[in-house]
Amino acid sequence: MTPSTPETSTEGADGIDSGAGPRAVHRALELLTLIVDSGPQPLSDLARSSGLPTSTTLRSLRALEHWGYIARTDDGGYVAGHRFARSRFDAEPSSAEHLFERSADVLQRLTELSGESSYLAVRGPGRTCIYLREVQSDQPIRHVGFSGWAGRTAPMDGSAVGAVFDGRTPSSGFLVLEALSAPDATVVAAPVFDPAGDIVASISIVGPSFRMGSEHVAELGPLVANASIDLTAALR
Protein backbone atom coordinates (compact mmCIF):
# COMPACT_ATOMS: atom_id res chain seq x y z
CA MET A 1 0.00 0.00 0.00
CA THR A 2 1.42 3.32 -1.05
CA PRO A 3 1.42 5.89 1.74
CA SER A 4 -0.55 9.01 1.02
CA THR A 5 1.39 12.15 0.25
CA PRO A 6 1.01 14.74 2.99
CA GLU A 7 -0.46 18.07 1.98
CA THR A 8 2.12 20.78 1.54
CA SER A 9 1.32 24.14 3.01
CA THR A 10 1.44 27.07 0.60
CA GLU A 11 1.55 29.60 3.39
CA GLY A 12 4.60 31.83 3.30
CA ALA A 13 6.70 33.04 6.18
CA ASP A 14 4.49 36.09 6.55
CA GLY A 15 1.31 34.03 6.86
CA ILE A 16 0.04 34.76 3.34
CA ASP A 17 -1.19 31.87 1.24
CA SER A 18 0.93 31.99 -1.90
CA GLY A 19 -1.84 30.23 -3.79
CA ALA A 20 -4.10 33.22 -3.24
CA GLY A 21 -1.96 35.60 -5.25
CA PRO A 22 1.30 37.52 -5.16
CA ARG A 23 2.30 38.99 -1.84
CA ALA A 24 2.48 42.43 -3.43
CA VAL A 25 -1.26 42.26 -4.09
CA HIS A 26 -1.97 41.39 -0.46
CA ARG A 27 0.24 44.23 0.74
CA ALA A 28 -1.50 46.73 -1.53
CA LEU A 29 -4.95 45.56 -0.44
CA GLU A 30 -3.95 45.74 3.21
CA LEU A 31 -2.80 49.34 2.78
CA LEU A 32 -5.94 50.26 0.85
CA THR A 33 -8.06 48.76 3.63
CA LEU A 34 -6.20 50.77 6.27
CA ILE A 35 -6.80 53.98 4.32
CA VAL A 36 -10.49 53.29 3.69
CA ASP A 37 -11.23 52.20 7.26
CA SER A 38 -9.26 54.89 9.07
CA GLY A 39 -9.18 57.86 6.71
CA PRO A 40 -6.17 59.93 5.63
CA GLN A 41 -2.83 58.64 6.90
CA PRO A 42 0.80 59.52 6.25
CA LEU A 43 3.35 57.03 4.97
CA SER A 44 4.89 56.51 8.41
CA ASP A 45 1.57 55.53 10.01
CA LEU A 46 0.70 53.14 7.20
CA ALA A 47 4.09 51.44 7.42
CA ARG A 48 3.73 51.08 11.19
CA SER A 49 0.15 49.77 11.04
CA SER A 50 0.93 47.25 8.30
CA GLY A 51 4.25 46.16 9.76
CA LEU A 52 5.91 46.65 6.38
CA PRO A 53 9.23 48.40 5.75
CA THR A 54 8.76 52.01 4.71
CA SER A 55 10.30 51.36 1.28
CA THR A 56 7.91 48.46 0.63
CA THR A 57 4.96 50.52 1.82
CA LEU A 58 5.91 53.37 -0.48
CA ARG A 59 6.18 51.08 -3.52
CA SER A 60 2.72 49.65 -2.85
CA LEU A 61 1.23 53.10 -2.32
CA ARG A 62 2.73 54.36 -5.57
CA ALA A 63 1.14 51.46 -7.45
CA LEU A 64 -2.27 52.16 -5.87
CA GLU A 65 -1.90 55.86 -6.63
CA HIS A 66 -0.93 55.16 -10.24
CA TRP A 67 -4.18 53.25 -10.80
CA GLY A 68 -6.32 55.84 -9.00
CA TYR A 69 -7.24 53.74 -5.97
CA ILE A 70 -5.61 56.20 -3.58
CA ALA A 71 -4.51 59.83 -3.83
CA ARG A 72 -2.18 62.19 -2.01
CA THR A 73 -3.47 65.07 0.06
CA ASP A 74 -1.80 68.47 0.21
CA ASP A 75 -0.19 67.60 3.54
CA GLY A 76 1.28 64.33 2.23
CA GLY A 77 -1.33 61.92 3.57
CA TYR A 78 -2.99 59.16 1.57
CA VAL A 79 -6.75 58.95 0.96
CA ALA A 80 -9.05 56.75 -1.12
CA GLY A 81 -8.85 57.75 -4.78
CA HIS A 82 -11.40 58.40 -7.48
CA ARG A 83 -11.31 54.91 -8.98
CA PHE A 84 -11.98 53.28 -5.62
CA ALA A 85 -14.82 55.70 -4.90
CA ARG A 86 -16.46 54.99 -8.25
CA SER A 87 -16.11 51.24 -7.77
CA ARG A 88 -18.32 51.47 -4.69
CA PHE A 89 -21.11 53.37 -6.43
CA ASP A 90 -24.02 50.92 -6.74
CA ALA A 91 -25.09 51.87 -10.27
CA GLU A 92 -24.29 51.17 -13.89
CA PRO A 93 -20.60 51.87 -14.53
CA SER A 94 -21.47 54.43 -17.20
CA SER A 95 -23.80 56.27 -14.79
CA ALA A 96 -21.16 56.38 -12.08
CA GLU A 97 -18.55 57.66 -14.52
CA HIS A 98 -20.93 60.30 -15.86
CA LEU A 99 -21.88 61.57 -12.41
CA PHE A 100 -18.28 61.57 -11.22
CA GLU A 101 -17.00 63.51 -14.23
CA ARG A 102 -19.81 66.07 -14.27
CA SER A 103 -19.43 66.79 -10.56
CA ALA A 104 -15.83 68.02 -10.73
CA ASP A 105 -16.48 71.55 -11.97
CA VAL A 106 -19.68 71.89 -9.94
CA LEU A 107 -17.98 71.05 -6.63
CA GLN A 108 -14.95 73.17 -7.42
CA ARG A 109 -17.16 76.17 -8.12
CA LEU A 110 -19.25 75.53 -4.99
CA THR A 111 -16.15 75.46 -2.79
CA GLU A 112 -14.84 78.65 -4.35
CA LEU A 113 -18.16 80.48 -3.91
CA SER A 114 -18.96 79.23 -0.42
CA GLY A 115 -15.45 79.09 1.01
CA GLU A 116 -16.32 75.70 2.56
CA SER A 117 -15.36 72.14 1.63
CA SER A 118 -17.86 70.45 -0.68
CA TYR A 119 -18.86 66.80 -1.10
CA LEU A 120 -20.77 64.51 -3.43
CA ALA A 121 -22.40 61.42 -1.90
CA VAL A 122 -24.39 58.57 -3.44
CA ARG A 123 -26.44 55.73 -1.99
CA GLY A 124 -24.50 52.81 -0.58
CA PRO A 125 -25.57 49.37 0.64
CA GLY A 126 -28.50 49.41 3.06
CA ARG A 127 -28.90 52.65 4.98
CA THR A 128 -25.48 54.02 4.07
CA CYS A 129 -24.06 56.57 1.68
CA ILE A 130 -20.73 56.64 -0.12
CA TYR A 131 -18.76 59.83 -0.63
CA LEU A 132 -17.78 59.90 -4.28
CA ARG A 133 -15.86 63.17 -4.52
CA GLU A 134 -14.72 66.08 -2.34
CA VAL A 135 -13.12 69.47 -2.87
CA GLN A 136 -11.42 70.84 0.22
CA SER A 137 -11.59 74.50 1.15
CA ASP A 138 -8.38 76.49 1.49
CA GLN A 139 -9.72 78.23 4.59
CA PRO A 140 -7.09 78.30 7.36
CA ILE A 141 -9.77 76.92 9.70
CA ARG A 142 -11.95 74.17 8.29
CA HIS A 143 -13.37 70.96 9.63
CA VAL A 144 -10.41 68.62 9.13
CA GLY A 145 -12.48 65.66 10.30
CA PHE A 146 -14.14 65.71 6.90
CA SER A 147 -10.94 65.58 4.88
CA GLY A 148 -10.30 62.43 2.88
CA TRP A 149 -13.89 61.18 2.74
CA ALA A 150 -13.91 60.21 -0.94
CA GLY A 151 -14.58 56.48 -1.11
CA ARG A 152 -15.72 56.22 2.49
CA THR A 153 -19.06 54.87 3.68
CA ALA A 154 -21.17 56.61 6.33
CA PRO A 155 -24.56 55.89 7.93
CA MET A 156 -27.51 57.82 6.52
CA ASP A 157 -29.75 57.78 9.58
CA GLY A 158 -29.61 61.11 11.38
CA SER A 159 -27.40 62.75 8.76
CA ALA A 160 -28.09 65.59 6.35
CA VAL A 161 -27.22 63.36 3.40
CA GLY A 162 -29.65 60.73 4.68
CA ALA A 163 -32.39 63.34 4.98
CA VAL A 164 -31.75 64.35 1.37
CA PHE A 165 -32.04 60.76 0.13
CA ASP A 166 -35.20 60.30 2.20
CA GLY A 167 -36.78 63.20 0.30
CA ARG A 168 -36.96 65.53 3.29
CA THR A 169 -35.41 68.58 1.61
CA PRO A 170 -37.75 71.56 2.17
CA SER A 171 -39.06 73.85 -0.57
CA SER A 172 -35.99 76.07 -0.16
CA GLY A 173 -34.04 73.40 -2.03
CA PHE A 174 -31.54 72.75 0.77
CA LEU A 175 -31.47 71.57 4.36
CA VAL A 176 -29.19 72.30 7.30
CA LEU A 177 -28.20 69.86 10.04
CA GLU A 178 -25.48 69.39 12.59
CA ALA A 179 -22.87 66.96 11.29
CA LEU A 180 -23.63 63.45 12.55
CA SER A 181 -20.01 62.53 13.23
CA ALA A 182 -18.91 65.94 14.52
CA PRO A 183 -21.20 68.10 16.71
CA ASP A 184 -19.03 71.16 16.10
CA ALA A 185 -19.63 71.08 12.33
CA THR A 186 -22.66 72.07 10.27
CA VAL A 187 -23.79 70.54 6.97
CA VAL A 188 -25.81 72.21 4.22
CA ALA A 189 -27.05 69.66 1.67
CA ALA A 190 -29.24 69.44 -1.44
CA PRO A 191 -30.45 66.65 -3.76
CA VAL A 192 -29.25 65.83 -7.28
CA PHE A 193 -31.77 64.20 -9.62
CA ASP A 194 -31.26 61.85 -12.55
CA PRO A 195 -33.17 62.26 -15.84
CA ALA A 196 -36.01 60.11 -14.44
CA GLY A 197 -36.48 62.49 -11.51
CA ASP A 198 -35.04 60.17 -8.87
CA ILE A 199 -32.56 61.39 -6.25
CA VAL A 200 -29.22 60.00 -7.37
CA ALA A 201 -26.80 62.00 -5.22
CA SER A 202 -26.42 64.64 -2.54
CA ILE A 203 -24.25 67.73 -2.76
CA SER A 204 -23.19 69.26 0.54
CA ILE A 205 -20.80 71.66 2.19
CA VAL A 206 -19.40 71.27 5.69
CA GLY A 207 -17.90 73.94 7.90
CA PRO A 208 -17.20 74.61 11.57
CA SER A 209 -20.41 75.62 13.33
CA PHE A 210 -18.95 78.84 14.72
CA ARG A 211 -18.74 80.08 11.13
CA MET A 212 -22.11 78.68 10.05
CA GLY A 213 -24.50 81.06 11.80
CA SER A 214 -28.07 81.49 10.59
CA GLU A 215 -27.31 84.57 8.50
CA HIS A 216 -24.34 82.94 6.79
CA VAL A 217 -26.25 79.71 6.21
CA ALA A 218 -29.01 81.76 4.58
CA GLU A 219 -26.37 82.84 2.06
CA LEU A 220 -24.76 79.42 1.68
CA GLY A 221 -27.98 77.44 1.25
CA PRO A 222 -28.88 78.87 -2.17
CA LEU A 223 -25.32 78.24 -3.36
CA VAL A 224 -25.67 74.54 -2.50
CA ALA A 225 -29.15 74.39 -4.04
CA ASN A 226 -27.90 76.02 -7.24
CA ALA A 227 -24.98 73.59 -7.40
CA SER A 228 -27.40 70.67 -7.16
CA ILE A 229 -29.50 72.20 -9.95
CA ASP A 230 -26.41 72.62 -12.12
CA LEU A 231 -25.35 69.00 -11.62
CA THR A 232 -28.89 67.76 -12.21
CA ALA A 233 -28.92 69.65 -15.52
CA ALA A 234 -25.51 68.25 -16.46
CA LEU A 235 -26.80 64.68 -16.07
CA ARG A 236 -29.52 65.12 -18.69
Rank of each mutant, 00 (worst) to 15 (best):
V106Q: 01
A20G: 12
A28K: 05
L177K: 15
H66A: 14
T169R: 02
F146I: 11
S202H: 03
V135D: 03
H26W: 13
A80Y: 04
D198F: 13
R86H: 11
S117L: 06
C129E: 12
T33I: 07
T56M: 06
P125A: 15
A163W: 02
Y78W: 15
D45G: 08
E11N: 07
L177R: 15
F165T: 00
P140Q: 08
A91K: 03
R23V: 11
I229T: 12
L52R: 02
P140C: 08
A163R: 03
P170Q: 12
D230E: 15
L235E: 02
V188G: 08
A24C: 09
L120C: 08
P93V: 03
H143L: 10
P140A: 10
A179W: 01
L180K: 14
A182C: 12
S55G: 04
L120I: 06
S209E: 14
R102P: 04
L52E: 02
L132C: 01
G77S: 14
E7K: 13
D157H: 13
G221S: 02
E92Y: 09
E92I: 03
E178G: 15
F174A: 14
M156L: 15
T2D: 14
L58M: 09
P40T: 07
G77F: 04
D194G: 12
A218V: 00
A227V: 06
A104Q: 11
W149C: 13
T128R: 10
E116C: 05
Y119V: 00
G21C: 05
L220R: 08
S172W: 06
S50R: 04
A201P: 11
P191R: 00
T33M: 13
L61F: 05
V25F: 10
T57I: 00
P140T: 08
R152L: 10
I205R: 03
R86W: 06
D75T: 15
L177I: 08
L132K: 00
S181V: 06
A20S: 11
G126L: 09
A85M: 06
S172K: 14
S181F: 12
L99S: 02
G173I: 06
I35F: 06
R23H: 07
P22G: 09
H26D: 10
A63E: 07
G173F: 05
L43P: 05
S181G: 15
T169A: 03
S44P: 07
H82Y: 12
R48V: 06
V106I: 02
A28W: 01
A163G: 05
H98T: 07
P22I: 10
L34F: 13
V206A: 09
G145I: 06
D75K: 11
T8C: 07
V217K: 02
